[in-house]
């Protein structure tokens, strides 16, 4: 066993990268759920974003353009969900799961032409002197732009929900759509925007997997990250800041367990492999036990809205 081989600085740097796709997808889903809509199709939107971003980055040579198109691809898929659940009033849980199935299929079909191709590299952001700060420079200031974009987005979503009128309306719609409707807010349109935003975020998260983390295209390559993102939203009790905490906790333990294995720690591999899931559950139990009964989920979550007048 050689625990000294694990460098905490590098560990944190790694977890920031590992957590980025989950942060992006979870933030998007957070906004969707805040508006009172439960979209279980995150995995499908992520994988669609992954292939859209990959294909565009390969064709144009621009990873940035790839991310933009990934966001659009994810949003486009999300709009199918929006059409079904908002206009045709279909059940959200089933529609979301169908969306995942559809997304996995469509992405694999688009991806047939992109197997074994190497995408253009997403450059590390040169933060000038910040990158030269000892310890912190390597740990925090040595990443690509998407890592920071995700962090900025966390702050943005937090501020939007907390301080803006738009955020207030969104939350009102999510808490009680009938009341919001009675006040004259366009419930369906607001939810449409939220769902599209969620799709765009999930798409970018997927593109981060195919363009930066792996980077290659293989069918189904997000391998369940969308489900983790869904879990993180619940873990975060629907708060943007806690999404960051949850994603870093999950990503951190995932990276740590691999590091412990590499260092030869005599703990059974099965236990290490399941640790990210178990620890997340345990932490949530502590958090929820402290909150004592406070209903944290948006009250209208998953309920169908139909304006009767």
């Amino acid at each position: 066993m050689n625990l000294g081989a694990i460098d905490p600085v590098l560990l944190i740097a790694s977890l920031m990268v590992a957590a980025t796709p989950i942060i992006l997808a979870a933030l998007g889903e957070l906004v969707v759920e805040k508006s009172g809509v439960l979209n279980l199709g995150v995995e499908g939107m992520m994988i669609t974003g992954a292939i859209c971003g990959f294909a565009v980055a390969v064709e144009t040579g621009s990873p940035v353009l790839g991310f933009v198109l990934a966001a659009m691809g994810g949003a486009a898929l999300a709009l199918i969900f929006a059409l079904l659940t908002q206009y045709l009033l279909s059940n959200q849980v089933a529609t979301g799961l169908a969306l995942t199935l559809f997304g996995l299929g469509i992405s694999a079909m688009i991806g047939q032409a992109y197997r074994g191709v190497k995408p253009p590299a997403t450059a590390k952001l040169n933060l000038g002197p910040l990158g030269d700060i000892p310890v912190l420079g390597r740990m925090v200031f040595s990443h690509d732009w998407v890592v920071y974009f995700a962090l900025v987005l966390v702050a943005g979503v937090w501020a939007f929900l907390k301080y803006t009128r738009g955020g207030l309306i969104l939350r009102a719609v999510g808490e009680n759509h009938d009341a919001a409707h009675a006040l004259g807010y366009k419930v369906v349109r607001i939810r449409l925007a939220a769902i599209a935003f969620g799709g765009a975020c999930a798409g970018m998260g997927g593109a981060y997997v195919s363009l930066v983390r792996v980077p290659q295209w293989t069918d189904g390559m997000t391998a369940g990250a969308g489900w983790i993102a869904l879990a993180i939203v619940v873990f975060a009790s629907w708060r943007a800041g806690r999404v960051l905490l949850g994603a870093y906790l999950f990503g951190g333990i995932s990276v740590l367990q691999l590091n412990l294995q590499a260092a030869g720690v005599p703990v059974p591999v099965e236990i290490l492999s399941m640790s990210p899931f178990v620890v997340t559950i345990i932490v949530l139990v502590f958090i929820s036990a402290r909150q004592k009964g406070a209903a944290v989920a948006p009250a209208a979550l998953g309920r169908i809205f139909h304006a009767s007048s």
């Binding site: 460098d7 590098l10 790694s14 983390r213 990250a225």
Partner: peptide, 20 residues
């Protein structure tokens, strides 16, 4: 402990490289 999870493979490679 997986046949297929590219992101996990990436993390595993990084962990090994970071440990020398």
């Amino acid at each position: 402990y997986t046949w297929f999870d590219p992101a996990k493979e990436a993390d595993a490679a990084k962990a090994l490289i970071e440990q020398g």
